[in-house]
Design a protein around this nucleic acid. Sequence first.
DNA 1: GTTGGTCTGACGGTG
DNA 2: TCAGACCAAC
Length: 819
Amino acid sequence: MTEAFDDDPYEGALSLSQRAMSARGTPYLDGLNTEQRAAVEALDGPVLMLAGAGTGKTRALTCRIAHLLNTGRARPNEILAVTFTNKAAREMKERVGALLGTGGEGMPWLGTFHSVCVKLLRRHAELVGLKSNFSILDTDDQIRLLKQLILAADIDEKRWPARQLAGLIDGWKNRALTPEKVKGRETAAFNNRGSELYDSYQARLKTLNAVDFGDLLLHMVTIFQTHPDVLEQYQRWFKYILVDEYQDTNVAQYLWLRLLAQGHRNICCVGDDDQSIYGWRGAEVGNILRFEKDFPGATVIRLEQNYRSSEHILATASGLISQNTGRLGKELWTQAQGGDKVRLIGHWDGEEEARWIGEEAEAIQRGTRGNDPVSLNDQAILVRASHQMRAFEDRFLSIGLPYRVIGGPRFYERLEIRDAMAYFRLAISPADDLAFERVINTPKRGLGDKAQSRIQIAARENGLSLLDGARLLLQEGALSGKAAGQLRLFVENIIRWHDEILSASAASATTAAGDDDELIEPDAAGVAPANDLSHVRLAEAILEESGYSEMWLNDKTPEAPGRLENLKELVKALEQFENLQGFLEHVSLIMDNDKQENDDKISIMTLHGAKGLEFPVVFLPGWEDGLFPSQRSMDESGQKGLEEERRLAYVGITRAEQLCTISFAGNRRVYGQWQSQMPSRFIDELPARHVDVLTPPGLYGGGLGGGFGSDHAASPAMADRAARADVYNSPGWRRLQQSAARGGTTYSSPKPRGKPVVIDAEEAAAFTIGDRVFHKKFGYGEVMGSEGGKLVVEFDKAGEKHLLASFVVPADSADDVPF
DNA sequence: GTTGGTCTGACGGTG
DNA sequence: TCAGACCAAC
C-alpha cells in the first residue's frame, strides 16, 4: 500500500521538452499571475496546487495541459486528466482546445474517474470475470437487485431496507474493500450478514455481466493490484497525470491514482481542502492533507488571489471557514474593493422567503435596487437540499418568473425513459434479467407475480436467463392460454429485435475495421453522429411493437402526453449515436441533462451542484439549524459533519461575485408538516462587519413582522443599525443562539403551557399542552400542541412526532395499558 | 391479475 | 408532500 516513489527513470526527459518549448510560442502563459504561472510551469514531479475558490484554478489546469502538449512533453493521449463531473471534463476539453486552437477532441484520457475507468475496464474485463460488454447498473437497478437478495436471505426488508444496504456496499467500495476484506468487520446491520449480502451481490453482478458505479473504480484497483504487467503498461503510458478536485477523492480513487502515478511520478493534484463537501460519499480530505507525505519532494503551490468575489463576500466566507479546524490554511485576498456587504434576512416562513427572493430577483433584474440591472441568468438560488426547490418553483410559476432547475430529476431517470431503455437493453442483450423483469409486465400482459416467479424458478433451476427460462416454460406448455400467448409474443419480439441488431452490427463491422493505435481509442463508444440511422428506426419499432407507446397513448392521466413527448425526445437523442450500444453507455455514464438554453432564467440548484460555478447574484435560503447544517450530517458525523456543512456554506458564499443574500425562515414545512425553525448557527459565525442585516424587528419577539422588506433598502445604513440592534442583541436571538449552542433538541418555538389541545370531537381536550404522555414505540414525551388533527409530541428519545391522539396515553397511566 | 384506496415512512448530494 | 407497500374488491 505504501510503495515509495523513489526512483524516477524519466528525469532525462527535461532537455527534450525544453528544446521543444523554444520551438513554439507560449501565448497562453500571458496574463497568469506568478503563482498560476508557477503551477503551469512546474511540469515535472509531484505537484499539489492548492487553489482557493475563484483563484483561476481551471485556467491554471488547462494552461498546464496546453503547456505539456506545446512543449512536446507528452502527446494528447499520454496525459491522464480526471475530474469528478462530466461538466468539468467537458469544460476542460473545450478550454484546452481553445488554447491550442484545436478542436478539443483528441484527449482520449480526459474524463471523469468513471468514464476513464469504464474505458480501462472494457479492455481488461476478463481479469475480474466480466465480459467486455458488461453493462453498468444505475442506482435504480442496484436497489431492485439488492431487494431481491435481501428477500432471498430471509431478512426483513422493512427493518433493513435495500437503500441502506446499497449505502453500506457503496461505502465499502469507496474504501476499495472487496467482500473478502469486509468479512469479519461485521456490524449489527442486516443481522450481521452485511458482508454475506455484499458477497452475493457481487456474485450476482458477475452472472449478470454487470457492474455498478463503485465497481468501476474497485475493479480497476483490483486489476492493478493483482496484475502488475497491466499496471506497468499504463504507468508507462500515462506520462502526466492531472487530477481536479483532489479533495473529493475517495480511497479507491486515491489508490488508483497512486498506482498509476508510480511510473513517471508526474502527478499534479488540484484541490481546495476548504471545498471538500463529499465526505458522505467517501471522499477523504485526508488525501489532500497528506499529499506531501505521499509524494515526497512535492512542489506545493498556493493560488490565493481571488478574482471572483467582492471584498465583503470574500471576507464573510473567510470568516466563516476560519471556524474549521484541520485546514491546510490559505489566505484568500482580492484587489477588488467596496461593493455590497453580504445581506442577511429572516422570514416568517419558507413561502415568505420564496416570495421575497422572487421579488428581489426581479428588482435586481430591473435595476430598481439602486444597482445596475443583472439578468436572471446571472442570478442563482442555492439550496442545501433539493426539496427546498419546490417552494421556489411554486412561487415562480405563479408569478411567472422564469427559472431553471439544475440537477433536478434527470431526464434519464424518468419512469418512461427507464422503461424504454430496458427494452433497448433487452434488444441488445436478451439475457439482461433486470431489464426483463422491469418490462415483462409493462405494458400489462397479464404476467403478474405468479407467472413471474415461475419464470424465475425455471431460470434458476436450469441456470438460464429469465428470457430462456420463459422460453422453456413456453416449450413445456406450462402456462395457461392468455398469459402464454402474451409471453410468447414478448419473447419472440425480443429475439427478433436482437437479431436485427446483430445483423446491423455485422454489416457495419465490415466497413469499419481498425486497430487500436496502441492505447488510443476512438473516443467513447460511438458518440460520432452516424449517417446510418437504422438503430433509430429499430428503437421506434421496439416502442411500437412492444405496445409501450400505445400504453401511454391510452393513458388518461395528465402526465401521459408529457411522457410520450419524452419518449420522442429519447428517440431523437439516439440520432447522435452510431448504435444503441453506444447510446446506452452514454446514458449510464453521462446522464446529464443540462440543455443549452438562451432564455433569461434564474437558476435554482443545490449547493453541491453549484460547486465550480459562479454568479454575480446569489441567494442562499434556508439557513436554519437542522436544515443547514443538516441534522442528518451532524447526527452521522458529529463535528466532522458540521465542518463539512460549514465548508458547504463556504462554497455557497464564494459562488457570489457581487451580491450574496443569506436568508432563513422561522417556520417551514417539513414532510408537509409545519415546523418551527431556528436560524443556522452559521449565521452567528458570519463576521458582522461584512454583513447587512435586513431582518426587521420582532420576528421572534412579539408581533410577526409583515410589511418589512420594502423600505429598508432605501436607507441601508439605518436599516442596518436598527436591524442589527434587534437581531443580534434581542433576547430572543440570544436565547435562540444559546439553545442552539447547547445542541438543544428543541426546534419548536416556545409554546404557551396549559392550553387545551382540541384534537377532534371525540378526543376533545383529552390532552393539554405540557402533558406527559406515553407511546408504545416512542416512549415518554410531552405534548407541544396540535396540528392538522394530530397531536404534536416532543418525545424524550424520539424527538418531535405528529400522531393521532389515540396512539398515546397519559404518562401516569402507561403502566395500566396492555400494549 | 388488476385496480384503487389507505397507510407509512422518507428528504443530503453524484457518477 | 409523496412514493411505495399493502390490502380489499372487482
